[in-house]
């Protein structure tokens, strides 16, 4: 069964207003949309059962509404709503029903938003091929996924390289449970470990060959702590994939990045060499707005010395 189509049909039937943008993404990038969306819909079905389309659709609609309302308030206020983890916990993290919807909404946004698909193409082109450089036949390398959420970025890395295993770290019990459940239901449990922990402090037993941290920096009071810990967990010469949201207000975004160079600087200060960057805006971003939300990706390598 084509689970991606089942999801799209459900979205069109029950949330017609929200279907159009997803259909436009599918039309703009048909190959990437299917390459990302089809396995993700299959994995969601394996994890959630026959009710998967409703859960994904309701999560996605919830996310779009929450994110756009927050962006409108941000446009008026000129700053993010929350400044501390404690405030965000009160508003969101402490509410399990909210977080479950949010979790699946973010999952769908990975393939429903065209700017995220562009980041994914960049991931395929600039990051994944580098992971294979040190792999030998029958060898095993580890990718650390800090702030793993549903574990989807590392999952695509495991799909691309059979010799890879991942260790995901997330502070949300909901996310850790969902990531474990999905790995188990889709045959990846033996190569995936998801642990409850603080991505800014958790240390792996041995340095990882590669590291991923996707859309976590903006959730932290001290984003530099995440990058310092990422670098500490990374073997010398290992590659990193880092993404962040800029001037994009969501209920749990704390650190407001306004310029791409702020993120590049943080990555460099952590001891990494920036190899490639990409910054993308949503299709619907309107030029009259003061704050245009962007998503940025950085491919970096752990430096051997101060220079390279």
């Amino acid at each position: 069964m084509d689970h991606l189509q089942v999801f799209l049909d459900h979205l069109r039937e029950h949330h017609a207003v929200f279907y159009g943008a997803v259909a436009a993404t599918a039309e703009a990038m048909p190959g990437t949309f299917r390459r990302v969306g089809a396995p993700m819909a299959d994995w969601a079905h394996a994890c959630l059962g026959d009710d998967f389309a409703r859960v994904l659709a309701e999560g996605y609609v919830h996310l779009v509404i929450e994110a756009n309302q927050a962006q409108m308030r941000y446009e008026k206020r000129g700053s993010y709503e929350h400044r501390s983890y404690a405030e965000v916990y009160e508003a969101a993290y402490g509410n399990e029903a909210f977080m479950t919807k949010y979790h699946w909404g973010l999952y769908v946004a990975m393939f429903a938003w065209v700017h995220h698909l562009r980041l994914f193409s960049f991931y395929e082109r600039e990051f994944l091929p580098r992971l294979g450089e040190g792999l030998t036949e029958g060898g095993r390398e580890v990718v650390a996924d800090l702030g793993s959420g549903s574990g989807i970025w590392s999952r695509f890395a495991l799909d691309a390289h059979p010799g890879l295993a991942c260790v995901g770290v997330d502070i949300s019990p909901t996310s850790v449970d969902e990531a474990r459940r999905m790995a188990a239901s889709t045959g990846f449990a033996a190569r995936s470990e998801f642990v409850l922990g603080d991505a800014t402090a958790h240390r792996l037993v041995e340095p990882a060959h590669a590291a991923i941290s996707s859309f976590l920096l903006e959730h932290l009071e001290r984003p530099e702590a995440l990058l310092d810990n990422l670098a500490a967990n990374l073997a010398q010469g290992g590659y990193a994939w880092i993404t962040a949201a800029l001037t994009a207000a969501e209920i749990d975004h704390i650190t407001e990045f306004r310029r791409e160079s702020e993120i590049v600087r943080l990555v460099e200060d952590a001891g990494l060499r920036v190899i490639a960057t990409l910054s993308e805006t949503p299709r619907a971003a309107r030029s009259k707005l003061r704050f245009v939300p962007r998503s940025m990706a950085v491919v970096a390598q752990k430096r051997r010395n101060d220079i390279w």
Partner: peptide, 10 residues
């Protein structure tokens, strides 16, 4: 679309 829908609802 979804963006105009939210603008409308506000």
């Amino acid at each position: 679309d979804s963006i105009m829908h939210i603008t409308l609802m506000v």
